[in-house]
């Protein structure tokens, strides 16, 4: 018998042993995540699409696959900020993002928020008001449609292309100036 056959047999034994690793009474749950959010759409929908997405996507986010599913905001560049009420640094950067939101209102760049804690829509909007967030907060369906990787730390801000491709992930407190610098580096018109 050849070594290759020995290897195949050994792998088969290993596979059988893994199959035999039984769990009695475990309860597999459905995969679908219910969306308790309303269908509110960001209030600052884009008016035209940019043409710079693919150029920068390949150089700045090689490990993040593009998301083929469009959301309502398809066509604009997006600055998407994850916030949480338990995150003190998040609250520090909110005024800066509010300023950015105002100044970019006439551009093709949206400033959008995501409640990292995934509270229900009513709670999320109430918390956003209490935190002084003036930019739109996405609902769970919109977040899911974007397919953004869940942040491993807060605050996290993503720069997303018009085709919903993540160009950059920024972790930590951002300022208006730091994001303008990045937009310039990425050649995103603003």
């Amino acid at each position: 018998m050849s070594p290759l056959r020995y290897t195949i047999i050994a792998l088969l034994i290993t596979g059988v042993s893994l199959v035999g690793f039984t769990v009695i009474g475990s309860d597999a749950l459905p995969n679908q995540m219910p969306d308790q959010a309303s269908s509110q759409v960001p209030t600052h929908a884009p008016t035209h699409a940019s043409t710079h997405a693919s150029t920068h996507a390949s150089t700045h986010a090689p490990n993040i696959a593009p998301n083929p599913r469009p959301i309502e905001a398809l066509g604009s560049w997006k600055i998407i900020n994850y916030w949480s009420t338990t995150c003190a640094p998040c609250r520090i950067e909110i005024p800066e993002l509010n300023l950015l939101f105002d100044e970019l209102a006439a551009s093709n760049i949206q400033v959008l928020g995501v409640n990292f804690d995934e509270d229900d829509r009513k709670t999320t909007l109430r918390l956003a008001r209490r935190l002084g967030i003036e930019f739109p907060t996405l609902n769970l369906s919109e977040v899911e449609a974007l397919g953004l990787p869940a942040p491993s730390a807060l605050p996290t801000t993503y720069i997303v292309s018009p085709t919903n491709e993540v160009l950059t992930k920024l972790v930590g407190i951002q300022t208006k100036a730091s994001i303008y610098t990045l937009l310039t580096e990425l050649a995103i018109p603003h």
Partner: peptide, 8 residues
């Protein structure tokens, strides 16, 4: 090194 909180 992470300039944010992992909530973890």
């Amino acid at each position: 090194k992470v300039p944010g909180c992992p909530v973890n």
